[in-house]
Nucleic acid binder design. Structure first.
Lengths: 348, 348
DNA sequence: GTTAGCACTCGAAGATTGAGAGTGCTAACA
DNA sequence: TGTTAGCACTCTCAATCTTCGAGTGCTAAC
């Protein structure tokens, strides 16, 4: 889109003013405020042009102008400047990143909480699984006579365990045999590759320990399936209500209901490549409930095989520059956190 | 409080009507609706008495009556009848109780979700730790040269693990020695009982494996500390907005903000004994934000040593009978779930 | 003790009005 | 040709007023 420099400055002034005040912006305000030495009348002419271009809108005849979604898009693509983080914010974010207990889940949910607090918008964080994960290591531990702990560790360095009861009696040597069998036959496989034939073969080899073998394998399958699916954390949802566009409950409630649905957030679009951001403005969203809402989301890497998302949901009148800068910082921090330490705690 | 049977019936009619409609109830409505063969005028007289007793209130002169907190309290204590659960509800609850993967956390958070869906109010669930938990069993597994998995199991049959890097080289026999040492010296102890002197003694015994020993023990301490503290799940918060008393945002927002605070819910009162319920009506709550809100909460047992809470937050005009019945059913179900299977999955 | 009748109260909802903000248009100016 | 001042016009918001109706308390009759 080819627009004169002056029009750009006016558009930008309108948008930034509107972002701060949530009130339609009039020509007079711009003339006084935006450091352009032109009269309100001239600005009115320019604004009329910008309206014809579809970048501004009028709520009604005698109100000022507000940005249209197209206007926001133009702003985000071409006008927006890098926003600086304050020192407090950087400290705050760093603190969240360096939690003592670096459990994957907890770091991620804490990330979402902090982002929400800093941006004043609801924030969500997702860790998505990857396509091919397999078990790398099995271990069986006896606790007492009929009680065992099954421990499995996946490719993604996640370790899980389960306490089980087994009716059979097992000697230490049988247990050790079973351990060997599991590690020899069931590592490096995806759930789909664990066929009934394979189980049958294992059955013959395991003998009396068959029950425990089945339990261990099906636990492993559960773990893998669970890694494939993803966890969603949402924080600060009621913050939406702090913004004037949601003072109206009929507007706010469907949105809140939608966002607190289990799957709403995991179906949002994702940035094309790690390290980039995606900004969806109003009608660019697919979901009906998000038509007046914008989503800003950044992606990060979790180790080598998994990815995560961290994003913010807010009104189209959102401070995109500020939000984007903070998400970017956080996403980078998370990527670095999980990369420096491939053996980040798989505890769970 | 001594009240004539007729007054009780009128009070009950007012309350149940108000619970359903959220509108002040007039004498005419009661006369037509409540199956008492008396005229509105008589009912007016009785209602005036009930108002003098502090059981009813008038929002303003020419509105009907609404129950006062004291009125609700009387209703809950003496008038309320057992509410029956529908077959669908029973099924729904049972389903949630018998999740395939019986991870403690997940069952509890699912419980909260289902209760919220059924009652249409926000619901919370808490698992509180108990006073003296110790480690029952340690296990160290080698994954590869410098990488180990630490597994600990607590009294409460919770098993946790962590993946660690250790710079030292350890032979299998050293590892097995360390396993023995850990199980001999550090089981049956609370975090407070693991003294520096004990660590010093262990240092001499462990030799080169000291690093791993320290890591394992401090992990164990973390786990125990974590068990002592408690997890809070909150679900369906936006449901509050579906109720007419929160159509007014100035009313709703402070409450939402309060409830979404980390610690708000864990500080609410608890029932005196397991298997009972506690109902807090409006001003009976300590927190300022809950003055117009009621809390209904039931407790359940998690195994032998831990306890849990499941509760609902809503307007004072809450269908106490219905909510209480559902919570009671669920709390009982949870207790039974965790008791039948002391070795419920300690996976985590 | 119960009931009908009636005057009275008070809030909710609608209608009316005035003020103010902002626009588009026109005509004058550089 | 681009810019500006002036002016009539539009439309919302908030305040004020009015009306309507539901519900009450009181009194007197049953």
């Amino acid at each position: 889109m080819d627009i004169s420099e002056r029009k750009k400055r006016i558009l930008r002034a309108v948008i930034e003013n509107y972002i701060n005040t949530a009130e339609p912006v009039g020509s007079k305000t711009i003339a006084e405020h935006a450091g352009l030495d032109i009269s309100p009348a001239t600005i009115r002419n320019e604004m009329a042009d910008l309206e014809n271009l579809g970048l501004l809108e009028q709520p009604h005849t005698s109100a000022g102008r507000i940005p249209s979604p197209k206007g926001y898009r133009f702003y985000v693509n071409e006008l927006m400047e890098q926003h600086r983080l304050s020192i407090q914010e950087v400290n705050r974010l760093n603190e969240a990143l360096h939690l003592k207990v670096q459990e994957l889940d907890r770091v991620i949910s804490e990330a979402s909480r902090v982002v929400s607090q800093i941006t004043k918008y609801p924030s969500y964080a997702i860790s998505t699984g990857c396509s091919r994960i397999t078990i790398r290591r099995f271990a069986l531990l006896m606790v007492e006579r009929h009680r065992f702990i099954v421990v499995v560790m996946t490719d993604a360095s996640v370790v899980k365990n389960k306490l089980v009861h087994i009716a059979n009696d097992l000697s230490p040597s049988e247990l050790s045999l079973l351990n060997t069998l599991l590690n020899a036959s069931f590592t490096g496989l995806t759930p789909e590759e664990i066929t009934p034939e394979l189980m049958k073969m294992a059955e013959q080899a395991a003998g009396a320990a068959y029950d425990l073998l089945v339990t261990a394998v099906s636990f492993a399958v559960d773990v893998l399936r669970n890694q494939e699916s993803c966890a969603v954390y949402l924080s600060g949802l009621p913050r939406l209500l702090e913004h004037p566009e949601y003072r109206n409950l009929e507007r706010a409630q469907p949105l809140l209901a939608y966002l607190s649905q289990e799957n709403a957030l995991s179906n949002l679009p994702v940035p094309d490549t790690t390290g980039t951001m995606k900004i969806l403005i109003g009608p660019e969203n697919v979901a009906q409930e998000l038509q007046d809402t914008s989503v800003v989301v950044a992606s990060y890497d979790i180790g080598e095989s998994m990815k995560g998302l961290i994003g913010v949901v807010g009104p189209t009148r959102m401070d995109y520059a500020k939000v984007a800068a903070r998400l970017y910082y956080f996403a980078e921090g998370l990527s670095r956190l999980f990369e420096t330490d491939d053996g980040f705690s798989g505890e769970h």
